[in-house]
């Protein structure tokens, strides 16, 4: 396994009218070649900011990378010149955005928008680029690509637009694909098709994918590893099995308890109480402490470090400290942990 992308101790702030918003407060993770890493977390936890930082697409006027590095194949993207960064964008790393309805230029034909990166990065002629663009349109499942090529975005449905956005992202066979909630705006059947599509493409061109979502159900389907974000930090990271069946962080417990499964029929679905932290004035201790029924005094005083659970599994909660009392996770989580043990012993 080779690391293709590495994010180290990333801190990002926005300067806003009301003050400094510390959106990202020390994020670490890496991405291996050919794998899919899912990032989950509530709205506002910093998923989009992290991914835009990798692409260097944060608004220049008010964002500030305070600290940290983003290594792509060993070179630090935060230090690249604008010119060199343009060569990375769309070619080595590409991105699918949250909202397909607004991501396409309304006054440019779809074809032109797909051709653009191909001509730019692969130095193909217009005709060759057009051929390639039509191929990709076909690949992402758009019927009549020749005809569609000449049309404007408003003539496409939401699902088709998202396919076009995906087609643009895949046009140059990127090494890393960042998909920021690529399916939230779509209905369920199209969601499934698009996820299938991404998995297929990954097999074909061995792309590494960062998959950002709210939907834990989707994660289990597509991801190899999962990172859970909360309040601008990664609070737990591990393989899908580890995070889903042996979660350690109380926030992850909350997330999992609030996930509907076949055997939770009778129980009421759980909702994490309270609201996310105000990143204008982040708390001194663990950002999750005010909403954490297992909170200890130290949680209010000091931020927890990453504790190692296994070689691939880390979590930032004081509950993993050797001196911490043993606590019982919520029933839904306990049930999963038992399943996890069964699976392990079964093997």
């Amino acid at each position: 396994m080779t690391k293709i992308l590495e994010v180290n101790d990333l801190h990002i702030s926005f300067h806003t009218f009301s003050g400094e918003v510390q959106a990202i407060r020390g994020v670490n993770f890496d991405l291996n070649k050919g794998e899919t890493l899912a990032i989950v977390g509530e709205s506002g936890s910093g998923k989009s900011v992290t991914s835009k930082a990798i692409m260097r697409l944060l608004p220049e006027s008010n964002s500030d990378i305070k600290n940290g590095e983003i290594l792509f194949e060993g070179k630090d993207l935060t230090k690249l010149s604008d010119k060199n960064m343009q060569k990375v964008r769309g070619k080595d790393i590409s991105m699918i955005f949250q909202d397909p309805m607004t991501s396409l230029n309304p006054t440019m034909t779809v074809g032109k928008q797909i051709i653009e990166p191909i001509v730019k990065h692969q130095k193909l002629s217009k005709a060759a680029a057009k051929k390639r663009a039509i191929e990709i349109l076909e690949l992402v499942g758009i019927a009549n690509p020749e005809e569609r090529f000449k049309q404007y975005p408003h003539q496409f449905s939401g699902g088709m637009r998202q396919r076009v956005v995906i087609a643009i992202a895949l046009a140059c066979n990127p090494k890393v694909l960042i998909a920021d909630e690529p399916t939230t705006a779509l209905d369920v059947t199209i969601q499934a098709q698009i996820l299938e599509l991404m998995k297929d493409l990954q097999k074909k061109i061995d792309t590494s994918i960062i998959f950002i979502t709210h939907d834990l159900g989707v994660v289990a389907n597509v991801a190899d590893r999962v990172a859970v974000m909360y309040g601008g930090k990664i609070v737990e990271i591990g393989t899908v099995d580890e995070v889903f069946y042996n979660p350690q962080h109380p926030y992850t417990w909350g997330l999992i308890s609030s996930m509907p499964t076949l055997d939770t029929e009778d129980e009421e679905l759980y909702a994490i109480p309270g609201t996310p932290p105000n990143l204008l004035h982040p708390p001194k201790g663990d950002a999750f402490a005010p909403r954490n029924e297992y909170a200890m005094k130290i949680d209010l005083e000091e931020q927890p470090p990453m504790f190692k659970v296994s070689d691939t599994h880390y979590a930032a909660t004081w509950l993993l400290h050797p001196d911490a009392p043993k606590v019982e996770p919520p029933p839904a989580v306990q049930r999963r942990q038992r399943q996890f043990l069964d699976i392990k012993e079964g093997k």
Binding site: A289, M296, K297, I298, L300, A324
Partner: peptide, 14 residues
């Protein structure tokens, strides 16, 4: 003693 439970009230955070 830092590992004793702390009084938190989720509604307060709101």
């Amino acid at each position: 003693e830092m590992f004793l439970p702390a009084e938190v009230d989720a509604t307060k955070s709101e």
